[in-house]
Simulated scan of single mutants.
Amino acid sequence: MQFTSTPRGARLARRFVSHRLDEWGHPYDSTANETLTLIAAELAANAIRHGHVPGRDFHVRLVQCTDETTTILRIEVADTRTERRPSLETPAPPAAEEEAGRGLLLVSRVADRWGVAPRVGAPGKSVWAALELNSQ
């Protein structure tokens, strides 16, 4: 899904993720929904703040893969800014007085895996995160 690189676009992306997860059987108040919605909010905010190119939108892709024992929920947020790639090392916490710099730290703590990949079919990058849920 495509969203404008604005605060409104980030809010709509977060709602899209939460609604889709609810449709897939992960209710709004479930840990999976709340966690992936939080990740979506952080990645969308980063795409707007650090990956914005004037006139270009960001894209969100949400995937669910299930087998007999595990469900994997994966979110990808793509922007068109190729030269600004986050480091894959666990981010250091910012100083207490800093107002920013906690987004990827938070993602690295709540996601089971996360990373950065070149954007397929267009310039830019895709930052992704995945949650693994044990099937019951």
Rank of each mutant, 00 (worst) to 15 (best):
A129N: 02
R85L: 09
H52K: 01
V60A: 07
V17M: 13
Y28T: 12
P86G: 04
T37P: 07
L106W: 07
R61V: 10
L131D: 01
P86N: 05
P123F: 00
S5M: 09
R14T: 15
T4M: 13
R109E: 03
Q136C: 00
F16C: 06
T69D: 15
A47M: 00
E132S: 08
T70I: 12
N33Q: 06
Y28C: 05
T80P: 02
S30K: 00
P94S: 02
H50A: 02
S108P: 06
R20G: 00
Q64I: 14
R81F: 07
E23S: 06
D112S: 13
A130T: 11
A100K: 11
V120T: 12
V77Q: 07
P27N: 09
T82Y: 06
A92E: 14
R74E: 13
A40E: 11
Y28P: 05
D29T: 09
T69A: 15
A10F: 05
N46A: 11
E132R: 10
K125N: 08
G103P: 06
L105Y: 04
L36P: 09
A96F: 00
W128S: 08
T66K: 14
G124Q: 06
T66P: 09
L62K: 13
T6S: 15
V17Y: 13
E23R: 08
A44Y: 03
R85M: 10
V63H: 12
L62A: 11
E68H: 10
L12S: 14
Y28E: 12
A130Y: 01
T90Y: 06
V77A: 07
L38H: 15
S108Q: 10
L131C: 03
H50G: 03
D57T: 02
T4R: 13
Q136S: 05
G55V: 09
R8K: 14
V63D: 15
R81Y: 09
H50I: 02
G9H: 12
S18V: 01
L43K: 05
V77S: 07
A78G: 12
T6W: 10
A92P: 03
V116H: 10
E68I: 03
W24Y: 10
E68R: 12
E68F: 03
E34W: 04
V60G: 04
A129K: 00
T35Y: 01
R14D: 13
Y28M: 10
R113H: 11
E34Q: 15
H59Q: 12
R11V: 01
T80N: 06
A92H: 09
F3A: 11
R119Q: 05
C65Q: 15
V77W: 04
E34S: 10
D22L: 00
W114T: 07
G115P: 07
I39R: 15
W128I: 06
V60Y: 04
T80G: 06
R15G: 12
A78N: 05
R119P: 02
L88Y: 00
R102S: 02
A47S: 04
R102Q: 05
G103N: 13
V120L: 10
C65I: 15
V17S: 14
L62T: 12
T69Y: 14
H50N: 07
I39T: 14
D22A: 14
A78T: 09
T90C: 03
H50W: 09
A45M: 13
L12K: 14
I75R: 05
G121W: 08
M1D: 09
V127D: 10
R8C: 06
P7N: 09
F58E: 04
E99A: 02
